[in-house]
Amino acid sequence: MNLFKMIKIHSLIPLLFISFLIPLKAQTTIYEEDIKYGNHYGNALLFQMPYCSKKMVKAQWKESVNMHFGKTSFKNIFKGISITDANIKGISDQPVDVYYRILDTKTDTLRVATAFILNDGEFLSSKTHPEEYENAVRLLTDYAYAAKKKCIELELQDSYDYQGTLNDEYVKLQRFKGKLEKENTSLENKIIQTKQKKASSEKQLEAIQSELEGGSLSDKEISKYTKQKESLSHKLIDYEDDISSYQVKITENKDNITKTYKDIVKKAEELKDQKTVIQDIKRKIEEVKK
């Protein structure tokens, strides 16, 4: 996961991948600064790397080193990585030790430091070895360029992944809304059917009541009609309860449909914004290729 994504998660800001990567056509600024190396300080060449993870930057550095120096072994030392006896054309005819470290920073931008320790133990600097220093600057500029390009490619992949998540959520909301609407249609049909059953039972109850009030029934018939009357009365109560529960559920679903529709509109806007983010990142990648 890249650093920008981590920042968004920990800050609990609603997820929207907005690219803050600097234009890659802009030249990387390499500057000098003394950094701590063991118990003493030495000159190093630094540049800034915005919105990239330390893991990615280190991996890209190792890849760049292997490309320029040949297959090389790395050693973790003094909170950084060191290479012993590297053959670096343009820096020195003798083997060179290289020390690489990502300096701690309180901002979102990583500071990447690389020190070249010459055969006599001296740290490469623009004052003591100006020509070799310029070669080192070109070397690090190439690395910074490749690392920034990799950052953008990772940012693009993250943005595509996030777009996929947004689209899945959008489809899920659409399906949920459709399910609620379908359920309400079914409930409305049930209300119609239940009202029809209720009307039929009411007619039967009226007919039974007429028979009971006629006064020419035997005790057996009176008992039979009385039981039927009680059964129909219970059914009418059940029908009323069913109709009421259907109506309550329909109202609840309508509220959820309204809310879901608002969520769908909001999600559609997020998808639209995310497409813009992806296009912006693609433009940066095209700039890198130029």
Rank of each mutant, 00 (worst) to 15 (best):
V98Y: 06
L15F: 06
E211D: 15
Y145P: 07
S19Y: 10
L187E: 09
E240G: 13
L3S: 04
Y170T: 03
E230N: 10
D34S: 06
L156Y: 12
K106P: 11
I30L: 02
V171F: 02
S245Q: 15
N87T: 09
M49W: 02
A115R: 00
E230K: 11
I285F: 06
K267M: 09
K227W: 02
Y145K: 04
P130K: 03
K8D: 00
I243V: 09
D161F: 08
G90K: 04
I9G: 06
T276M: 11
G80H: 10
H68D: 15
I192L: 09
I281G: 00
E211S: 14
S186G: 00
N119Q: 14
A59T: 05
Y143A: 10
L140T: 02
K249G: 03
S82F: 01
G215A: 07
H68I: 14
Q94W: 13
T105F: 13
Q163Y: 11
S216W: 14
V96N: 08
I250D: 02
I152H: 02
S186M: 14
E181P: 05
I191S: 04
K190Y: 14
S210N: 14
Y160G: 01
K148G: 09
K71A: 12
G38L: 05
I117C: 00
Y239S: 09
T260I: 14
G164K: 12
T251L: 13
I22P: 14
G42E: 13
K203C: 00
N66V: 11
K254N: 11
D108M: 10
D168W: 03
S92I: 01
K229S: 09
I9H: 00
I83H: 05
Y246I: 12
L166C: 01
G90W: 05
D255N: 13
Q196V: 09
L24I: 15
S125R: 04
F69C: 06
P14S: 01
A268Q: 04
Q274A: 11
H68G: 00
E134R: 09
Y143W: 04
S231N: 07
A86Y: 08
I77C: 05
I91Q: 07
M1L: 10
D120F: 04
I7M: 11
S53P: 07
K149G: 08
Q279C: 00
N167R: 04
G164D: 10
E155S: 03
T258E: 14
Q209D: 10
E153C: 08
K235D: 13
Y143V: 08
K203I: 13
K275E: 12
E270I: 11
L139G: 02
I192D: 08
E213W: 00
T107D: 01
K224T: 06
F74C: 07
H40N: 12
E155Q: 04
N76Y: 14
E122L: 06
E134K: 00
D158E: 15
S216C: 14
S200D: 15
Y170H: 10
Q193K: 11
E181F: 09
N167V: 07
A199K: 04
S216N: 15
M56G: 03
T84N: 13
A113W: 13
Q279W: 08
N119V: 03
K224S: 12
R111L: 01
H234L: 15
K195H: 08
